[in-house]
Write a protein that binds this DNA or RNA. Structure first.
Lengths: 312, 312
DNA sequence: TGAACAACATGAGGCACATTCATGGCTTTG
DNA sequence: CAAAGCCATGAATGTGCCTCATGTTGTTCA
């Protein structure tokens, strides 16, 4: 019909801009550089001869033209989604099984919302959680007990399809007024005299032990609890210190229940990956799930960094 | 949202495929090669794992998946159109003036439908027809008496924006059983003893005279009439022969009122162009008009060939 | 029946255009 | 006031779409 430089990519970009509230974050969500998004915006604004949003205000307020394009983006996205769903039905590819195995406790924080959204999009897919912790998670894929595994380490195997998710900082949690809270960051030795409060899991699964304390020859007492709230409670009442993902405790820190410090001068960072068999990686609902995980996590977890896109 | 290789280009392609009824014609309409459209189709079918339409049948019948995508294409196209219209209103670029000057009589056949469609799309644009024939049509642009001129010859001037429209064959029209109808094609000399029936216009404006007869030194008697029907009538009743665009008389020929023959062994071809001032070429409704002309002409005029696209 | 033709498929390669890279200006924050 | 975000912009780069050339199939004439 009419020649228009408008493409779906632009609509997706505008939606991401609204969701994330900034050009750079939108770029991350789209697996692009900030520059690319900026160029796209400029091209659109040039074409319509009007600004699309007010840059100097956060959250950015869209102009009427911008709002109209966003409305288009929404309706088109909805139509697109409906179409693809119907087509999957027609082709018979809409049904299937997706069993997800998880290595880390905190993962449930973002996994549940993601699974909910997937259930909406793919009602015909049997979605299961493979519970319990396994020494060799990739074995679950090969023995056909799971279609997707969440890992907190890049596996050595190259015969599985790896989908980078995001990167986050693991920070030490201290009671207010704790002696160590005076330091700008914590050294491994600082843990020696403390009780380390963790989730119930083998040492190997706990990043701060595997990657910081054990290499330094430090083996503090351990105490564990299933619930993040309980861990925070124990820390606050000076029964020990913990090392948790920043997003998991941001709320408690903000409210002043506890304080947090980096681990080591550069901080300690964890990364999460999803792994599937190569064959499963081509299934549309698996691809959709990866995308949904990245998006929901990025939007709900503060301070995380998406992996595998245009920037590290 | 979901990563989908589907882009607007694909939807436009499918719509064109439906309108034109064939891959190659769709390609022409999209200003692409047949190969490009074929590749696009293959990519889509590969992605959805299903055929989109039955190739060996004309008109091509779409599979359920193809039909569903076409429905999407229609709704998205409508949404897109509505959005752009609203934005033009917001920006204030929806209003303007478009005076069209025409050189040839038959042009009205396709110009009227195109102007009707433009009026729908751009209700705020003042659409006028500059009547009468002018010796120097480009002068109308420079003296600001028209925004767009239809030409049947590539102008020498390079300071106007030229928009190629389409190419068509001009064929000789003869009464059934006419002596010349025995020939596979007509030579210039064949016109010498005949009366040439034309529209009322100077010799310069009549392609067969300017490009065939005059160069050959042949100057047949002339007789003219305003209406195509009347010309056909005169030819049928053996008052003379005519030379008209194939599309303009296809109906009469099909019904057997008259017969047609190529002019010269290779045939005589006419080409039509639209010209505007460079500034006017950037106006959205002018661009839209060009597109609309090409599309409506291509869909309604039999045997024409779009110009300026991926193929000559 | 076969040749000529039309329509579509397919692989390789070129080229346009979106994206990245590198940098600078601007605002915010401690 | 330094330091860090955030965004804009020009030039370089690379990816993917399209074209080109050719092969294949189906169709229409002698």
């Amino acid at each position: 019909m009419a020649l228009s430089p408008l493409e779906l990519r632009h609509l997706r970009m505008l939606a991401a801009l609204r969701e994330t509230g900034s050009v750079s974050r939108a770029a991350q969500m789209l697996c692009l550089t900030q520059s690319a998004v900026s160029h796209q915006l400029r091209a659109l604004e040039e074409h319509y001869g009007a600004a699309l949003f007010e840059r100097k205000s956060s959250p950015p307020s869209f102009t009427p033209v911008g709002k109209r394009l966003l409305r288009l983006a929404d309706t088109v996205a909805a139509e697109l989604r409906a179409t693809e769903a119907e087509i999957q039905q027609l082709v018979g590819a809409g049904a299937g099984q997706l069993r997800v195995a998880v290595e880390c406790h905190t993962c449930f924080d973002w996994l549940m919302p993601a699974m909910d959204r997937l259930r909406e999009h793919w009602p015909e897919v049997e979605l299961d959680l493979v519970s319990g912790f396994h020494t060799e998670p990739l074995g679950l894929l090969r023995s056909d007990r799971a279609e997707l595994v969440i890992l907190h380490e890049r596996p050595a195997d190259t015969d599985v399809a790896l989908h980078p998710l995001f990167r986050f900082e693991i920070r030490a949690l201290l009671a207010r007024g704790h002696a160590l809270a005076a330091r700008p960051w914590l050294e491994p030795a600082d843990f020696a005299a403390e009780t380390l409060i963790t989730y119930p899991a083998p040492d190997d699964m706990i990043d701060v032990i595997r990657r910081v304390l054990r290499p330094a020859g430090v083996f503090p007492r351990r105490r564990d609890s299933e619930l993040t709230v309980a861990i925070v409670q124990l820390v606050a009442s000076r029964r020990g210190i913990a090392a948790l993902p920043g997003w998991a405790v941001a709320g408690y820190v903000e409210r002043g229940y506890v304080v947090e410090r980096p681990i080591g001068p550069e901080g300690l960072f964890g990364e999460l990956y999803a792994a599937t068999l190569p064959a499963a990686a081509t299934l549309p609902y698996v691809q959709d799930f990866i995308t949904v995980i990245r998006e929901t996590s990025f939007l709900t977890l503060p301070g995380i960094h998406l992996l595998g896109g245009a920037d590290g």
